[in-house]
Simulated scan of single mutants.
Amino acid sequence: MAKESFQYRETESLFQQLEDVSQRSSVSRGQAFEDFLHAVVCSLGHPRMEEEYLDMIARHTDGPKGERGCDKLAEMFGQLVAIMDRTRQDVLGDLFQGAITYGERGQFMTPEPVCQMMARLNLPVEDTGLEGRRTVNDPCCGSGRMLTASAELQPHWHFIGQDIDLRCVRMTAINLALRNHYGHVVWGNTLAVEAKLIYETGRLQLWGNAIRKVGRLPVPDREAQLVDVTPPSNADRPEAAESVDGPQANSEPPSRQLRLF
């Protein structure tokens, strides 16, 4: 097995706790990580996801109280919140890449400074507030780094993430929920317009839950922006009135596509 490698030093302590869960509950490291993500989502979705939580946590309840896997999962959750509050770093994505997948199937997380640069290149820097809310979509969201980088600039916008990997969907939901950002995270193949599961974050309900399951994505409350991409006909060109024997006869029609090469 490849050696673990982390970008953030805080991830190492989270990894040691994950290994402890794996040993105490006699499950693989990958299973322990999936159960940890599931436990956190269910905790943030309490009480609506209580039955789901109890079904999952059953394999972590063997042993004396205080030494069970479920006890360590609770400690791990507390440590995750403390690290994120202190550093604002995506330690979940770092742990996922550095100790679970090792880049399997090309699952390398975009470095957070690159995400921040891309957000600044594409979004207004000044906070537009609720009145100027727009939607940001990442069709292959991973752990949600592109969305959280966008939220640093525009915290009031609507963030949508989609991914075919349920682990990534739950990481993104956790990262948005713990930062109290309004968004939706969809489990499914984006290219096939698939939605097996949708989590909504950032709207605290009467029960106090920060994550909930919903049946659909909300329709944007603004008109779609229509862009005319029809190429102009020769009759619309000023030079069309000139003689076909002139120098313009063999020229290409003006293009509305930016030339890159």
Rank of each mutant, 00 (worst) to 15 (best):
T128E: 13
A151P: 07
D165T: 03
A119E: 05
Y102G: 14
D94Q: 11
L166A: 05
C70E: 14
E112C: 08
R170E: 01
E131H: 12
G106T: 09
A173T: 02
M84V: 10
L153K: 08
S143Q: 06
Y102V: 09
L178F: 00
T172A: 07
L130Y: 11
E126L: 12
G98Q: 10
D127Y: 06
M109A: 14
D62N: 13
C141D: 02
V136G: 11
R145A: 14
R88F: 02
L73H: 12
T148G: 08
G78H: 09
G66M: 08
R179Q: 06
G132N: 09
Y102K: 11
D62W: 04
N137H: 10
V169P: 03
T110C: 05
M84C: 07
V91W: 00
D85T: 05
I164L: 14
D90A: 13
R134H: 10
F96L: 12
R88C: 02
Q154Y: 01
W157M: 05
L123N: 14
G103Q: 04
N137W: 09
C168V: 01
N175E: 00
G63F: 02
M146K: 04
L80V: 03
A82V: 00
K72Q: 14
I174S: 02
Q79H: 09
A82K: 10
R167C: 04
Q107E: 13
P124S: 12
N175V: 02
F159I: 04
V91G: 06
D165S: 07
A149T: 04
G129D: 09
P139K: 09
M146D: 06
V125C: 09
P113Q: 06
L123G: 07
H156G: 09
F159L: 08
G144F: 01
P64R: 10
A99C: 13
H158M: 04
C168L: 00
T128G: 14
R88M: 08
E152S: 10
F96M: 13
I174M: 04
R134T: 13
P155D: 03
M146S: 09
T101G: 06
L95M: 14
A58E: 08
P124K: 13
W157N: 10
E131A: 15
T128P: 12
F108H: 15
I83S: 02
C70T: 06
G142Q: 03
G161M: 00
T172F: 00
G69M: 01
R68V: 10
K65S: 07
D165E: 03
V136L: 15
E112R: 15
Q162P: 00
F159C: 06
D138E: 13
R134G: 11
I100D: 11
E152P: 03
G144K: 03
G98M: 12
Y182S: 06
G103N: 10
P155L: 02
A173R: 00
G103D: 07
L80G: 05
G63S: 10
T148P: 10
C140I: 07
P124E: 12
G103Y: 08
K65P: 01
H60F: 07
C168N: 06
A177G: 04
A74G: 06
L147V: 04
M76R: 12
G63N: 06
G132F: 09
D85M: 11
A99T: 04
L80C: 03
W157P: 00
Q162M: 03
R68C: 09
R145W: 00
